[in-house]
Amino acid sequence: MAEPEQLVVEAERQAVAATTLDELSAVRTAITGKRSPLVAARKALGDLEPDARKQAGQALNAAKAAIDEILSAREAELAAAARAAQLAAERLDLTEVTELPADGHLHVITQTWQELEDVFVGMGYRVAEGPEIESEWYNFGALNFPLGHPARDMYDTLYVDYGEPGTTLLRTHTSPVQARVMENQEPPIYVVAPGRCFRQDTADATHMPVFHQIEGLVVDRDTTLGDLAGTIEAFTAAYFGPGFSSRLRPSYFPFTEPSAEFDIQRPDGAWLELGGCGMVHPNVFEACGIDPEQWQGFAFGFGIDRLALIRFGIDDLRELWTNDIRFLGQF
């Protein structure tokens, strides 16, 4: 029977000789398994006298503990080495990338459109829509442009061949949505209506036959011109940011009275003409079935395209319509 000390020495020798975790596992079985000298020695203890058994048992236990420690230490060493080898083998150059899938981009008009919607939704407005091919009535008649009114000339209207000549047109502004909302909704009304509009215009850096506007309409009991000015100012601060302010200048639109142009002042002091606005004209209320003695309101509208140009630093409106991926992909 081998001495316990010898067993420890042998275990140490074999553990060091093992160079992989698998080999070490075999060593563990050989040294501590059912058929190992250690187990055989433990079984042989039963043949000893009690005193000798106790002494030999203690020696065996001590040897077992030492062997376990040796094997565990070696196992940790080999596991660390195996992990290091694996990691080294798996090294990657993270710049070896051959594919970069394209990002999808929303068009600058849509981005601007949504930002504007979000500002007004935050101020309590709903978002209304209307048809792009519109009747002469909603585009002009309901908005206090009588037939033959010279103010119709302010709009270079494109008509379509549908119904009686001159009755159907490509809407020249988003204002028909005002009339449609007022016809279909009881006041109070707080809506904005973004949309596509058309004019007979030759395409150049600042004009396109197709463009986008956003229209606002508020109808309530005591809505005033002061409310309009305050709303424009609140929008200016919310959309453009601190340091921007607004002003109203008297102007003329058939569907509002009093009417005004509104300008935005940049922090550098420069003024930018943004859009038109005013108090809803009593004739418009009447055309839409709202009693102008009971309700007052204001409306405003401005171009989305030009805002997009300013916001993104684009200098030519036509770029918006090229659909060149090198343009679309920048925003």
Partner: peptide
């Protein structure tokens, strides 16, 4: 300048 308030949720 005043800003009208609405009970409507945007």
């Amino acid at each position: 300048r005043t800003v009208p308030v609405t009970e409507q949720a945007g």
